[in-house]
């Protein structure tokens, strides 16, 4: 499954997914219930709302070695908390433009809106994003291992 890499041994592609509890996490559940086949690269973190996401979490994931980061929430205007995804959209749109300056291909990050009933769309999103990441290959990272110290805040 993973793409070739000459020096290192083959490493499993890992994608971090941040899914809001109300829409996309439910959408991923629906896709599962319907047994829609999906690639297994995605590791989902359940969050209350996409507005909960600090863009630094996405950057942190990439620095740590995530090959891709997928954020998914309620469709704009359908946010469980009314406006959370509007804030998220703005933050992530800015982040996407910044990623290349940090040395990451912006294609490694994607955000999308999937509702709790859109299992089929979730399958498409995951499959498509996974294919993109496989095409890009493993994240070369910042070429330095970050100490595996216990997780603390950024300060």
């Amino acid at each position: 499954m993973s793409s070739k890499s000459d020096a290192k041994q083959e490493r499993e592609i890992k994608i971090v997914g941040f899914l809001c509890n109300w829409c996309s996490y439910g959408g991923a559940d629906t896709a599962g219930v319907c047994r829609f086949r999906q690639p297994t690269d995605l590791r989902i973190i359940r969050i209350p709302c996409t507005g909960r996401i600090d863009p630094l979490m996405i950057v942190k994931s990439l620095i740590q070695g995530a090959d891709g980061v997928l954020v998914s929430g309620c469709h704009p205007n359908d946010c469980h908390y009314a406006v959370g995804n509007f804030y998220a959209r703005r933050r992530m749109e800015v982040l996407k433009r910044f990623l290349p300056y940090m040395g990451f291909q912006s294609d490694r990050f994607r955000y999308t809106w999937v509702s709790a009933s859109e299992g089929q769309i979730w399958q498409q999103v995951v499959t498509d994003f996974s294919e993109t990441i496989h095409r890009l290959g493993p994240n070369p990272g910042l070429h330095q291992t970050v100490d595996s110290a216990p997780a603390v805040s950024w300060f």
Binding site: K14, I45, R52, M57, K60, G65, A66, S148, A151, S153
Partner: peptide
């Protein structure tokens, strides 16, 4: 946010790439 603190979310990320 209690039960979804930064520490908790970052810990989930970090442990994936240990």
């Amino acid at each position: 946010l209690r039960h979804s603190t930064d520490d908790q979310i970052l810990a989930e990320i970090n442990t994936l790439f240990d």
